[in-house]
């Protein structure tokens, strides 16, 4: 077993090419447990905690880029996140415990692709793009496509950042867990909107923990366009969501509960976006 602590991204790319059975160590909240439980036994651990370039949140003219090693505490407290992406702040604030938020990273949450991952529905609803880099290439992949096509990160790649356009959107998030802190989402919903004079110009909604991976509800997004914001609390969106959840998890014992519960979680998510103000 070899353990490396590179100080720059290029060093990581070289190491990824050299070793086949490697694991990148980000926050460690999943990896260390998997090692302890004997689920994985990597030949090489590449600890990327020392790479400062992966811990930045930067603003450009049109977009914000979030380094993959930004932890949830940073997301929760960051002024750019608070200014542009309310859903991310809400999701980061309700993830795990203070200790976990100090360790777990946005990149780790994406790459581990848990069905109940907290941040992924928010990023998909905000149309986030992943930047995957290797020694020979850079790939830009829309996060929704990443999950839809199961076009996973390659063994020689590292997720360096997540890019989100900062066009003027309202966004919200809600999750249903079994308790207040440390809860794994039973259902989570992220929404984002562009509204002009109370008319919905754009809507994006992503559901988590009601399928193998988080997914958008295109039917609702299309129907909402051109309607007033009151539409969001009418019967039609609730029926669409119920049907979607039914279709997605109809074989599961949690389906009867989740197809009802989705409605409340959706309403809370919409309310949290401030769209009704």
């Amino acid at each position: 077993m070899d353990f490396y602590q590179p100080l720059c991204i290029n060093e990581v790319k070289d190491l990824l090419v050299q070793s086949k059975f490697n694991k990148l160590l980000a926050g460690g909240t999943d990896l260390v447990l998997d090692i302890k439980r004997g689920k994985i036994n990597p030949e090489v651990i590449i600890d990327i905690n020392r790479i400062e370039a992966l811990k930045d949140i930067r603003e450009d003219h049109h977009e914000i880029s979030i380094g993959s090693m930004v932890c949830f505490s940073q997301l929760k407290d960051n002024s750019l996140m608070n200014q542009y992406f309310h859903s991310i702040v809400l999701s980061a604030s309700h993830m795990g415990s203070p200790q976990i938020r100090n360790m777990a990273t946005i990149g780790g949450n994406i790459i581990n692709k848990a069905s109940a991952a907290d941040i992924i529905p928010c990023l998909i609803s905000l149309n986030a793009v992943l930047v995957l880099e290797s020694k020979d290439s850079i790939r830009y992949i829309n996060l929704e496509t990443y999950f839809q096509n199961e076009d996973w990160i390659r063994k020689d790649e590292i997720l360096t950042k997540i890019i989100i356009s900062k066009k003027n959107v309202l966004s919200g998030y809600n999750k249903l867990g079994k308790r207040n802190s440390l809860a794994i989402a039973r259902i989570n919903v992220a929404v984002s909107f562009m509204i002009e004079d109370k008319i919905i110009k754009h809507m994006s909604i992503c559901l988590g923990a009601v399928g193998r991976y988080p997914f958008r509800v295109k039917e609702l997004e299309e129907k909402a366009i051109g309607k007033t914001v009151d539409y969001l609390f009418s019967e039609e969106p609730l029926e669409i969501l119920e049907q979607q959840v039914y279709k997605s998890i109809k074989g599961r014992s949690s389906m009867p509960f989740k197809k009802e519960a989705i409605k409340g979680v959706y309403k809370n998510a919409v309310m949290s976006s401030g769209v009704m103000k």
Binding site: F3, Q5, G28, V32, L33, D47, S73, P98, Q99, N102
Partner: peptide
């Protein structure tokens, strides 16, 4: 920052 020492590899905090 407070962290859970059961989820940290000692080598990582070198």
């Amino acid at each position: 920052r407070a962290v859970n020492s059961c989820l940290v590899l000692a080598a990582s905090v070198n």
